[in-house]
Design a protein around this nucleic acid. Structure first.
Lengths: 131, 131
DNA sequence: CTTGACCTTCCAGTGACTGGAAGCCTTAGA
DNA sequence: TCTAAGGCTTCCAGTCACTGGAAGGTCAAG
């Protein structure tokens, strides 16, 4: 397969695939004209990475997961640990965002939203009060 | 005030304050030795930006909010609109994160997390099934 | 007079891509 | 056989909002 076909089948853009090669995820062979040739194993790897990324794992976590995937002797505990840490990070982010949303919603509800200049949102940004 | 004092009082690192000057948020005067001198208005502005950033507004949104804050003739509707758009973005992010968390939690619960190699988490990343 | 805490500028790196330029390769059609 | 389109290559720069570090000037205390 050429890179275009792999991109289509994995759902990962060609640019990103080349980037993944740069950072050592893949080592596709080249044919005599310099084009990358991908095997099914590489397509599979890319799809794996794509799924992990869409679950919010960063590149280093993907690397670790991939290494575990390819290690037939690993215990599932290692994988579970990475996933649990990641869930905790996600929970933290959710909590931060909810706090932001709640503050903002509160301010928005207090704001008339008309032609007059009084604005609790700006007042809060200006003096930190009004919550 | 020198930059160090402003940093302490606003809670914004000196590096970031210099960066904010670079991108045109501030225009502190300089004294003869080249040091920046900050007035209270600049400290106030920085604190404003700090609060807006902590509510998740990006730099351009902060710029817009600051401009509205300094425009005595604006209507609160303009501010409310920016805030509402921002809340919508936050809601979207929260929804994405919750979806990730739920998928992961589901997989984690299905994973024994022991010394054995079977792992539903890796299986899911590998073949997309198991949800 | 030295030490240490400030301050300055400039350059590079972060994460994970993404866009664009310049140029080679391949294939289908006129 | 020429040509045009599309796919492929590399390399460089930009994104966002900082952050770290180097190299050096300034200032106040002891």
């Amino acid at each position: 397969m050429n890179i275009g076909e792999v991109a289509e089948r994995s759902g990962i853009p060609t640019k990103t695939i080349r980037y993944y090669e740069d950072i050592g995820f893949l080592h596709p062979k080249r044919n005599e004209n310099g084009y990358r040739i991908f095997e099914d194993t590489e397509l599979h790897k890319l799809t794996f990475i794509g799924r992990a990324r869409s679950l919010g794992f960063n590149i280093e976590e993907c690397r670790a997961l991939l290494a575990l995937y390819e290690d037939k002797d690993r215990g599932s505990a290692d994988v579970k640990k990475i996933a649990q840490q990641h869930v905790q990070e996600i929970e933290d982010k959710i909590a931060d965002l909810i706090a932001m949303r709640d503050t903002l919603t509160h301010l928005i509800n207090a704001c008339a939203g008309d032609h007059r200049p009084d604005c609790p949102i700006l007042d809060n940004l200006s003096d930190g009060k009004g919550e």
